[in-house]
Amino acid sequence: MAESAACPAFQLGRSRYDQSSFLGRLRHFVDIIDPSTLFVSEIRLKECIKLLDDYKHGTLPPGVSDVQLWEAQKIKQVIGLLLPNQTVVSTIIWQWLNQSHNACVNYANRNATKPTPTSKFLQGYVGAVTSAVSIAVGLNVLIQKANKLSPATRMIIQRLVPFPAVASANICNVGLMRHNELSEGIDVLDNNGNVVGSSKIAARHAIMETAFTRVVLPMPIFVLPPIIMSYLERLRFLQSNRRLLLPIHSFVCLLTFGLSLPVAISLFPQMSQIEVSRLEPEIAMATDCKVVTYNKGL
């Protein structure tokens, strides 16, 4: 009763906690990563989605509290890119959310030796979202029209669709978000850490290495869980205990992401080196070093 009394009125798509204060934001993110959501059954998930749909259309049953609505929204937000049988709308929404996150990550982890205009940020954002949505929706439509495929084969392919969409969008995202580096160049340093000059060639290498990392990063989580789950779902134990599918799927995703993240970011050193002979002539004239260093970014 105390929790209900202190609970704010429900607002669809908003946070339960005050986002203008540090404590409110902290409570918001702690709520999002609540591990109890891993044990939500498919039936419970569908109930939450229906409850939110009823609220949206003004057909909410009497007696439903704000606490129940906030909890339903929290559970629904567990769903993401890996859900099978997505609609066109859900595909667009989740690709948009994913690329919005990636745009911020790429911007925050760029080589910041040169300022990035807001227009470049917006170009990268729009380009990445557009490419991800176009590829994901296009592949889904093609698969749905592939009548010659068996249901099992079609299901596996559908679950693999997010990977090429996200991988290509990630490349686009990095390239467009950091396009300013290609035109302005990035600082290269000598053995003593002094700036030798600004190199567009080094910038190209930095962006290519980062883009490759962004392709490798989602590979395990988009490829392995669908394959593993397609096998596990055929087990008699899970067929009779369907409520365990979501937590097991989440656990498999957690393990694969935990593996892919350190592997991907370890492919290239953040402070990478390149031979001076491969750079612009003015860089070679400005130093006696054979090799210079540049910040690749993450």
Rank of each mutant, 00 (worst) to 15 (best):
residue 20 S to V: 02
residue 61 P to W: 13
residue 110 R to Q: 03
residue 61 P to V: 07
residue 118 T to F: 08
residue 75 I to L: 08
residue 82 L to A: 03
residue 36 S to Q: 07
residue 150 S to N: 09
residue 152 A to V: 14
residue 30 V to M: 12
residue 161 V to I: 15
residue 74 K to Q: 05
residue 116 T to P: 02
residue 69 L to W: 08
residue 17 Y to N: 09
residue 149 L to Y: 03
residue 96 W to G: 01
residue 45 L to H: 04
residue 20 S to R: 03
residue 44 R to K: 13
residue 56 K to F: 15
residue 20 S to K: 03
residue 129 V to K: 06
residue 151 P to G: 07
residue 65 S to V: 11
residue 90 S to Y: 01
residue 154 R to V: 11
residue 78 V to I: 04
residue 39 F to C: 02
residue 98 N to D: 00
residue 77 Q to N: 04
residue 53 D to I: 08
residue 141 V to E: 15
residue 62 P to R: 13
residue 134 S to G: 11
residue 64 V to L: 06
residue 29 F to Q: 13
residue 155 M to E: 14
residue 141 V to L: 14
residue 115 P to F: 02
residue 132 A to C: 10
residue 114 K to D: 00
residue 125 Y to P: 00
residue 82 L to Q: 05
residue 56 K to D: 13
residue 40 V to C: 05
residue 133 V to G: 05
residue 73 Q to H: 07
residue 73 Q to I: 06
residue 107 Y to M: 04
residue 153 T to V: 13
residue 89 V to L: 15
residue 53 D to M: 09
residue 77 Q to S: 04
residue 129 V to M: 05
residue 133 V to H: 07
residue 141 V to H: 13
residue 109 N to P: 00
residue 112 A to G: 03
residue 112 A to P: 02
residue 37 T to Y: 15
residue 108 A to T: 05
residue 62 P to K: 13
residue 16 R to N: 06
residue 36 S to E: 03
residue 148 K to N: 14
residue 145 K to N: 14
residue 59 T to D: 00
residue 54 D to W: 15
residue 34 D to Q: 05
residue 44 R to M: 00
residue 153 T to M: 13
residue 87 T to N: 09
residue 156 I to E: 11
residue 77 Q to G: 01
residue 34 D to S: 08
residue 24 G to E: 05
residue 109 N to T: 11
residue 76 K to E: 00
residue 101 H to M: 10
residue 52 L to I: 13
residue 118 T to V: 07
residue 95 Q to E: 14
residue 130 T to F: 12
residue 117 P to G: 03
residue 14 R to G: 05
residue 108 A to L: 09
residue 57 H to N: 10
residue 142 L to P: 15
residue 35 P to K: 02
residue 97 L to N: 03
residue 134 S to D: 06
residue 139 L to G: 12
residue 152 A to D: 14
residue 136 A to K: 02
residue 82 L to N: 06
residue 95 Q to W: 05
residue 58 G to Q: 04
residue 14 R to F: 15
residue 59 T to Q: 10
residue 127 G to T: 09
residue 86 Q to N: 08
residue 26 L to R: 11
residue 94 W to L: 07
residue 35 P to V: 02
residue 161 V to Y: 04
residue 17 Y to S: 07
residue 103 A to M: 08
residue 30 V to L: 14
residue 51 L to E: 04
residue 54 D to K: 15
residue 34 D to K: 09
residue 152 A to M: 13
residue 86 Q to W: 01
